[in-house]
Every structure is written in C-alpha cells, then in structure tokens.
C-alpha cells in the first residue's frame, strides 16, 4: 500500500476537477437539461428584422416560450422570413396573434414579442400549428431611424420658425 496517500490525493484532485466542471456548467453557464422539449415551428414575415439574431428569445408577456430557429429571405418578394420554434407546451396561441420585434432595454438584445390574439371558432380563427404563418407582424424599431427622423423634423421646424420671424 505504498501509493495509498498519493492515490487518495490524486483521486480527490480528479474529483475536484469533475465537480468544478459540473458547477461551471450548471451555475455559471446556466446549462439546463431540457433540450428534449419538442417544438413546433411557425413563420412570420417582417419588412425589417433589424439586428435580430438566431436563437433570440421569443416571449409572450415577457415569458420565454421559444427561440428564433431560422432567418431567411423570400427570394421573390425580398422579405425576411423568421422561423420561430415554440415549445409544444404553449400550443394554444391563436393565429390572430401579433408578432413584433422588440428591444430589451434601450440598446439591448432584440427579441420577438408575441401578443396573443382572440380565439373564436365561429370567426374562423385557429390555434397556430407547425408550418403556419403569423400574418400580423410588426417590424423592428431601429433607433438610428428614429433619431434621424427626430433630427430631421426638428431642423425643418426650426427652419419654418426662423422664416416666420
């Protein structure tokens, strides 16, 4: 048993390594083992997606219900199409719902906010299912556009005012 002390210490060392890896993965990287949750994909056309990226969150009322799973351009009309993966848990979303691209905070990440619409079978609305399109969409608000609009308008106004004087 010559190696006993060394072996115990080396065993502890390896164990510490494994524990450190697990803590880093769970606590620091926030790894959650729910990758098995099944999703269904719906599509939405936007006129401008701003800086929306793959894997951006999709939210209803601030609660994450899925992720952006693909961004592509429709060749004929040149409009961006965003594929949205929503987890199967949330399958009661009316097809009258509105999808809009919003920004968290002033300069934060962009995400898709879905505002639930009404559901009434007699009016012909259905629940969204795999492959459906969300018709009602709102494009990204681009901060630079707003600023340029504001600057442009205010300069025009001051010009008019100076003419009056």
């Amino acid at each position: 048993m010559k190696y006993l002390k060394t072996e115990i210490l080396v065993g502890c060392f390896m164990l510490m390594g494994i524990v450190a890896a697990v803590i880093l993965a769970l606590q620091v990287a926030g790894l959650v083992f729910n990758s098995k949750t099944e999703t269904y994909t719906v599509y939405a056309k936007f006129s401008d997606i701003g800086s929306l990226r793959l894997r951006a969150p999709v939210r209803i009322g601030g609660v994450n219900i899925g992720r952006v799973s693909g961004i592509s351009l429709e060749p004929e009309t040149m409009t961006p199409i965003v594929a949205i993966g929503i987890s199967k848990e949330f399958d009661k979303i009316s097809n009258e719902s509105k999808a809009s691209i919003q920004t968290s905070g002033l300069i934060g990440e962009q995400y898709i906010a879905i505002t639930p619409g009404f559901y009434d079978e007699e009016m012909g609305t259905t629940y969204l299912k795999d492959g459906d399109y969300i018709v009602d969409t709102g494009s990204a608000v681009i901060l630079e556009d707003l600023i340029s609009k504001f600057v442009f308008n205010s300069s025009v106004k001051t010009g008019e005012e100076s003419k009056k004087d």
Binding site: Y3, T6, E7, L9, V10, C12, F13, M14, M16
Partner: peptide
C-alpha cells in the same frame, strides 16, 4: 502507479 504518482506531483501539488 507511475501515472498516479506524476499526477500527484504535477497536479495536486500545483493546486
């Protein structure tokens, strides 16, 4: 055993 000894020397003592 040689490997264990060396891990002790290289790894454990550097902790």
């Amino acid at each position: 055993p040689l490997l264990v000894n060396q891990i002790y020397f290289i790894g454990v003592q550097s902790i």
